[in-house]
Amino acid sequence: MLGGGMMEKRIEKARSFLKEKELDAIFIYSYENRRYFSGFSGSNGYLLITNDYCGLITDQRYTEQAKEQSPHFEIITQGIDPFSTIQDVFKGKDISKIGFESESVSVHLFNRLKSIFIEYEWFPLTKELLNIRKVKDDAEIEIIRKAIAISDQAFAELIPLLKPGMTEKEVAVELEYLMGKLGHEGPAFGTIVAAGNRAALPHAIPSSKIVNNNEFLLIDYGVKYMGYMSDMTRTIVLGSPNEDLKKYYDIVHEALEKSIEAVKPGMTGHELDAAARNVFIREGLEQYSLRGLGHGVGLQIHENPRVVLDSEEILEPGMIFTIEPGLYVPGKVGVRVEDIVLVREDGCEILTGTPRHIYI
C-alpha cells in the first residue's frame, strides 16, 4: 500500500482538476485511474470523487482488500445490482456537473447512469486523467525502478541459456519463467522474440522459427509489478552477421545514443523524435523506421507522454518514457534497442540497466 501522504496528494490533484474544469465530481471506472487515485488493485470497482467526498464501490470479494488499500475512501459493498448501489452513494451529494471516462465507460454503462441521474450534466473526459498521471511521483518512480530491476535480472539470467538451435517460442518461455521466479504480476505485454528477418515485424509473435547463428535475435519484453510496467528491447548478435546487417545495428544504436543525449525538459515529443529520425534520414533509411520514438510507461504500457512525430507534448521532470529507435527492412533485417528514461532538470536518467551490446 502506498503511503497516506502520497495518496492524499493524488486526491488533491483530482480536486484541483475539478476546480479547473468547473465540475462537481468525477466518476472513475478504468482500472488504471481507479488504482492511481485510490490504491485499490481489485478487478471491479467505481470511484466517486467530489470536493468533500471519496467513495469506492466494489463487490464482496474485495471489501476487506479495499479497506486495506484505500483508507482515504469510504468503502461500499455493492449488491447484485451495482446501479442501485451507485444511486444510493450519489444520493445527497451536491452534484450537477460530473466528468466520466468516455474512453473506458461502455455505452451500456453510460446509458444506465444517464437514465438514473437525468438531472446531471455528464462531461466526457478523454486524456485528462491520463495527463494527471504523466508526471510520476516518488512512489511511482521507485516501483518502476523495481519492475525494471526484475526485467534486468531475468534478462541477465537468460543470456547464458541462449544458443543457436532454440526456437523463438523456447526463448520466450525461458524468459517469462525467469521473470516469474523473480516475482511480478505477470508480463507487461506479449513477449516479442524474433530471429533473423522476422525481426522486421515490429510486434512479432514468437514462432517455431529456429534461432540461427550469424543473425540477430530481437527480444522485447516487460513485467508488471505493483501495477506498474517495465519495457525493454535488445537486439542480440549471434555469431558474426555480415557487414550489411552490422550497419543497421550500428545506426540504430547511434540513434538511441543521440536521442538520450538530447533529452531535456521543455522540448516537445516531436523534437526528441527528430533526434533519432535525423540519423535515419542521414543514412537514407527513414522509410524503414516507425512514426514514433517512444511512449510513456506507468500503470499502462503505453501512456503519456507520446514521443512521436508531430507531438507538441512538452517534456517535464518526472516523466518516464521509452526511447526505442528501430529499423525494419521487410524480408531482410529488423533492429530495435529500447531503454526507459526518467526526465531530470538537466537531462535524463537511464533507468534500464541491461547492457545495450550483447554478443553470443
Rank of each mutant, 00 (worst) to 15 (best):
M1P: 06
G3M: 02
G4H: 11
G5Y: 05
M6G: 09
M7L: 08
K9M: 09
R15G: 09
R15P: 11
K19N: 10
K19C: 03
K21E: 09
E22G: 08
E22K: 14
I26D: 08
I28H: 12
S30P: 06
Y31R: 12
Y31C: 07
S43G: 14
L47S: 09
L47N: 01
C54Y: 10
L56A: 07
D59Q: 05
R61P: 00
Y62F: 15
Q69C: 11
Q69R: 09
S70W: 05
P71V: 04
I75F: 06
S84T: 06
T85W: 13
I86W: 08
F90C: 13
F90S: 13
K91R: 11
I95Q: 09
S96F: 15
K97Y: 14
I98M: 06
S102V: 12
S106R: 03
V107R: 13
V107T: 06
F110G: 13
N111K: 15
L113E: 08
K114A: 11
I116D: 04
I116S: 09
F123D: 10
P124F: 08
N131C: 15
K134P: 10
K136E: 02
D137H: 12
E140Q: 07
E142Q: 09
R145M: 03
A147C: 06
A149Q: 15
Q153K: 14
A156T: 01
L158N: 00
L158W: 01
I159D: 02
K163S: 03
V171A: 14
V171P: 00
G180Y: 00
G180F: 01
G183I: 05
G190S: 07
T191Y: 01
T191A: 08
A194P: 11
A194Y: 12
N197D: 07
A200I: 10
L201T: 07
S207V: 00
S207I: 08
N213P: 05
I219L: 00
D220Y: 00
K224S: 14
M232G: 04
T233G: 04
R234G: 00
I236D: 11
V237C: 10
E243P: 02
L245H: 05
Y249N: 03
Y249G: 01
D250L: 03
I251F: 02
H253L: 14
H253A: 07
E257I: 03
S259A: 11
P265S: 13
G266V: 11
G266A: 08
A275L: 03
A275K: 10
R282Y: 02
G284W: 01
Y288W: 15
R291S: 11
G294D: 14
L299V: 12
Q300I: 06
E303R: 04
E303L: 04
R306A: 14
V307H: 02
D310T: 11
E312D: 12
E316M: 12
G318S: 01
F321N: 01
E324G: 15
G326L: 15
Y328R: 10
K332E: 13
V333S: 11
G334M: 10
G334Y: 08
V337K: 02
D339T: 12
V341A: 08
L342V: 13
P355I: 08
